[in-house]
């Protein structure tokens, strides 16, 4: 039985990708500009936002990465569920 994923899954995943991409760019920038306070503030803003997005996604669709919370106490969710290349 192959259940198709809800559209919400892709939408939230893309939002996470957008936030994480900005984080990566800002990380690289801040490595060479450690005192740029405005960039640091933007980085923290996006880090917080990304954490929220991941929290929302994981509570709805399961763990995103190893080390994520296993939210179903009676079932090990990490092994199941569509893998990134199947999504």
């Amino acid at each position: 039985m192959n259940k198709t994923l809800p559209q919400e899954y892709y939408k939230q995943l893309e939002e996470i990708q957008v936030a994480d991409f900005v984080l990566i760019e800002l990380t690289l920038y801040l490595d060479t500009h450690p005192t740029d306070t405005q960039a640091i503030e933007q980085y923290n803003q996006f880090a917080h936002y990304s954490k929220q997005l991941k929290e929302k996604f994981e509570s709805a669709f399961g763990p995103l990465q190893q080390g994520s919370l296993n939210r179903t106490p009676e079932f090990w969710a990490w092994k199941s569920g569509p893998w990134p290349w199947q999504v």
């Binding site: 990708q17 957008v18 936030a19 991409f21 900005v22 760019e25 800002l26 920038y29 060479t32 500009h33 740029d36 405005q38 960039a39 996006f46």
Partner: peptide, 22 residues
């Protein structure tokens, strides 16, 4: 050369599409 601070940025969604924030 050395990247000046406060360069104009793409919107986050646009940045992901374009592959760079600036």
């Amino acid at each position: 050369g050395f990247q000046p601070p406060n360069l104009p940025q793409f919107s986050p969604i646009e940045a992901l599409k374009r592959g760079t924030l600036w």
